[in-house]
């Protein structure tokens, strides 16, 4: 059995969205290096509960890197020091005995802190609601190969669809820009035939909602790409920009003519 380690945590504690928060120091003693980062927090929280103190609030759900809930900035990096890894999949063997770990919530005007490390990521839901879908009539499923799709597009769309909406990109961006997330959600549809009918309306609407949520704008620092646990590429942002430019150049106001009905 690997030797257990002792750590010091500096955790952002904030009662609710209205209160000011502050860093509080906690020891994390006798931590197994085989634990996940969230399990380490569970151990610390159990200690706090036993002492009658308020446990540290953090979001989590699947604990297997697919739900995107477990966002927190660990030592200045969203989801911690390992590439392509969510906080829940980070293991304590990434830390050394005696390390100090600073834990902060995602910092963005668009993501108010609800409590401690938990933020309200409703802004992402509203961006999806503004256009991140296709309007398809339901019915019996089509034959799988009825729609020809180039392999390359299928692969790129699948890569974009790997986005779990965790918002590490916003947290890492010096401008708190959401463009990596938004561009992934635009690209996964823009690359497929089913996404074409609403392609240029979608990009306008989702960008409009992104701006209305007061995210910052990309200055091409590339921090998002480095922080993304799912390897979403900045190429998607270029595709979003391309589609937005085309949509703006070719947009026609609705006329209601042409036999609308």
């Amino acid at each position: 059995m690997a030797k257990h380690i002792n750590l010091t945590l500096h955790v952002w504690r904030q009662k609710n969205a209205k209160c000011d928060g502050k860093f509080v120091e906690y020891p994390a003693a006798d931590i197994s290096p085989d634990m996940s980062f969230l399990e380490m927090l569970d151990v610390v929280n159990e200690g706090l509960i036993r002492k009658g103190e308020e446990p540290i609030t953090f979001d989590h759900d699947c604990r297997e890197g697919i739900c995107g809930q477990c966002g927190m900035v660990i030592n200045g990096r969203p989801h911690g020091p390992k590439e392509r890894t969510t906080s829940c999949q980070l293991h304590m063997r990434s830390f050394k005995d005696g390390d100090t770990i600073t834990l902060e919530p995602w910092r963005a005007e668009a993501f108010p802190v609800l409590k401690d490390l938990m933020v309200d990521r409703g802004a992402f839901d509203r961006i999806i609601a503004a256009g991140g879908f296709i309007s398809a009539p339901t019915g019996s499923p089509q034959d799988a190969n009825a729609l020809p799709i180039p392999k390359e597009n299928a692969d790129l769309a699948m890569d974009a669809a790997a986005c779990i909406g965790c918002a590490a990109c916003v947290a890492a961006c010096p401008n708190a820009s959401a463009m990596l997330f938004v561009s992934a959600k635009i690209s996964q549809l823009a690359l497929l035939p089913q996404g074409q009918p609403e392609r240029y309306i979608r990009v306008r609407d989702m960008v409009a909602q992104m701006d209305a949520e007061e995210f910052g704008t990309c200055t091409n620092h590339s921090e998002c790409e480095a922080a993304c646990p799912k390897g979403i590429k900045m190429e998607n942002i270029a595709r979003m920009n391309r589609d937005f430019i085309k949509a703006s150049l070719t947009y026609r106001p609705p006329t209601g003519g042409g036999g609308a009905g």
Binding site: G76, E104, E109, N175, F215, H221, A227
Partner: peptide, 14 residues
């Protein structure tokens, strides 16, 4: 867009 900054942000790619 970021009124409250980080205590320990580490640039990685910029």
């Amino acid at each position: 867009a970021r009124p409250v900054g980080y205590r320990a942000q580490q640039p990685v790619a910029s």
